[in-house]
Amino acid sequence: MKKVLNVVVTLCVLLVFFGGAQAAPKPDDAVHYRQGVLMALGWNIGPMGAMVQEKVPFDKERFAFLADRVAQLAPMVIEGFDVSTKDAKSEARSELWENLPDFQKRMSDLASASQKLAIVAGEGDKAAMKRQFGVTVKMCKGCHDEYRVKH
């Protein structure tokens, strides 16, 4: 009985120790997190762009579905841009950390624009959808141009 208790206690201690270590995210994890969210954004924006350019038939329902996802994802990105990731290997340029308030404002503008895109998409006016899509992707490009390594 005592032996079993010993094992249980040891396991609990180990769990707390390693579990605790995992709870504080490493800078690399934050980078992977934001890259994942940005990748997911791109994944959803791609087909929307194809529809907006009429490369594929414009499907209002699918567009609204994708717009909802984008509106969910856009506000999530900023969490990954923690100052602790400043020196982590990523495509963020040092200018981003020098102008952090500007970047944060741009990210919150993107969040508002994509929220508006989801609302507009729900209303179903195709011309308005295209217009708001243009406004939203311009914000993507804004930070890519300013704060992303040219490769």
């Binding site: 350019q53 243009g134 141009d145």
Partner: peptide
């Protein structure tokens, strides 16, 4: 420079 939909 404008990008987005103007890339066409």
């Amino acid at each position: 420079r404008e990008g987005g939909l103007l890339m066409k």
